[in-house]
């Protein structure tokens, strides 16, 4: 210690003042950066966030462990998790929640994904999450002026509920989620579902899934469909739907 010159001593005391740490810590960082004050500060701050995160991570993992002792939360854990949040599994907002915590597959929550997702929205505990749900997710999800969050959740749902490497979504699954998400929102949803069940009878491609949202948003009644242009960029499944509906009329 005695070997420190005046400049170095000055740096140590300044470092301690800025970071509210002990002299030992200050010396460790400064020595590691050869008494370059800025570099030492940078290193310290990086470590600090890391350790903060580490602590956060521990808390989040604890939260996770309440529902699963394993790497993955199974369906029972998820049901408990969701009801602790005061939600019903059938509630479409669960999809929005899954989207926010970056859950990749329905029916299981991976611990690493869970931790990463929670960190990103700065939630550690169930209470944090409840708060986030009330103040951020719900207002955005139900907003009538701006449907951009809802649309993101809708688009996310395709990959979220799809099983395996199949490109397309099985029709019955797709129909379930259309019922859950779109029926209350768009008038023609029921008629689309009827068409896809009785006429199309085919799995739903990602493009059809995505474009359906735009389509239902743009055409809100059968009357509107009379101005539909089948040569425009809509997927051909939607062309089929329109010509079917108009021929039924």
């Amino acid at each position: 210690m005695s070997q420190l010159n005046w400049n170095q001593k000055n740096a140590v005391s300044q470092f301690m003042q800025f970071t509210e740490t002990s002299k030992d810590t200050a010396l460790r960082y400064l020595r590691n950066s050869r008494f370059d004050f800025d570099n030492a500060m940078n290193a310290f701050l990086t470590d600090k966030t890391m350790s903060d995160q580490k602590q956060d991570k521990i808390i989040i993992e604890e939260t996770f462990r309440k529902y699963s002792s394993d790497k993955e939360m199974d369906i029972d854990g998820i049901i408990a998790f969701i009801s602790d949040l005061g939600l019903n599994v059938e509630d479409p907002i669960v999809l929005a929640l899954s989207y926010c915590i970056k859950s990749s597959k329905i029916g299981a929550i991976n611990k690493d994904e869970f931790v990463k997702g929670m960190l990103e929205i700065h939630c550690k505990t169930i209470d944090d999450l409840k708060h986030y749900l009330e103040t951020v997710i719900k207002p955005n999800f139900t907003s009538t002026e701006d449907d951009s969050f809802f649309k993101e959740v809708y688009r996310f749902t395709f990959g979220f509920v799809k099983v395996g490497v199949q490109r397309a979504l099985p029709l019955d699954t797709a129909v379930d989620y259309w019922r859950l998400l779109l029926v209350d929102r768009f008038q023609l949803t029921e008629s689309w579902i009827e068409f896809s069940e009785t006429q199309l009878k085919k799995d739903v491609s990602k493009d059809t899934w995505n474009m359906l949202y735009e389509f239902l948003k743009e055409y809100s009644s059968i009357e509107d469909l009379k101005s539909y242009d089948a040569t425009a960029a809509w997927p051909s499944t939607i062309d089929k739907y329109v010509s079917y509906v108009l021929s039924e009329e």
């Binding site: 490109r167 397309a168 491609s205 990602k206 493009d207 059809t208 089948a230 040569t231 809509w234 997927p235 051909s236 499944t237 062309d239």
Partner: peptide
């Protein structure tokens, strides 16, 4: 145009 659109669908897929 219908045939072309189907092929566009396929290529998107």
């Amino acid at each position: 145009i219908g045939e072309i659109k189907k092929c566009i669908d396929l290529l998107i897929d």
